[in-house]
Amino acid sequence: MTAIICMALSALGVVIAVTTASRGRFRAALRWLAVALVPTGLYLTGLVTVFRNIGTTLADWGSHLVFDPKVWVGVVMLCATVLLLLATGVRAGRGRRRGKEQGEVPARGGKPGTPPGRAAGAALPARSEAPTADLGDFSDVEEILKRRGI
Rank of each mutant, 00 (worst) to 15 (best):
I54R: 13
A133P: 01
P125F: 01
V105G: 06
A122E: 14
A123K: 06
W72D: 14
D134R: 14
F67H: 14
R91S: 13
A119T: 04
G93C: 05
K146F: 05
R118G: 00
L84C: 12
R147Q: 08
G103E: 00
D140S: 10
I54D: 03
R96M: 08
L84F: 09
V76L: 12
V50E: 06
R91E: 10
K111A: 10
H64M: 13
S128N: 04
K70Y: 13
L65E: 09
G121D: 15
V141H: 04
E143R: 14
R96K: 14
A130T: 10
L124Q: 13
R91L: 12
A92C: 01
G113W: 01
P69I: 03
A59N: 08
R52D: 13
C79I: 12
L135I: 01
T114M: 11
F67D: 11
P125W: 02
T114V: 10
D140L: 02
L84D: 05
L84P: 00
A133N: 02
V105Q: 15
D60R: 15
A107C: 12
V50I: 10
L65N: 07
L65M: 11
G117E: 03
D60V: 13
K70I: 08
S139E: 10
R96N: 08
R118S: 04
L84A: 15
P69W: 05
H64Q: 13
V66E: 03
K111Y: 04
A120R: 04
G99T: 10
L78K: 06
V66A: 09
R94F: 00
I54H: 06
P115S: 07
A87M: 07
S128H: 05
V71H: 07
E142R: 10
A123G: 12
Q102T: 03
A80I: 07
M77G: 10
T81D: 02
C79N: 09
K100E: 14
N53Y: 02
K70L: 13
V75I: 13
G121M: 04
R118F: 09
R91P: 00
G95F: 05
A126G: 03
R147Y: 02
C79G: 12
G55L: 08
V48N: 09
K70H: 14
L85A: 14
T88N: 06
G62P: 02
F51N: 07
L83C: 09
R127F: 03
R97C: 04
G93K: 11
A119I: 00
G74Q: 08
D134W: 09
P112K: 09
R147D: 04
A123F: 01
L85R: 04
R52L: 15
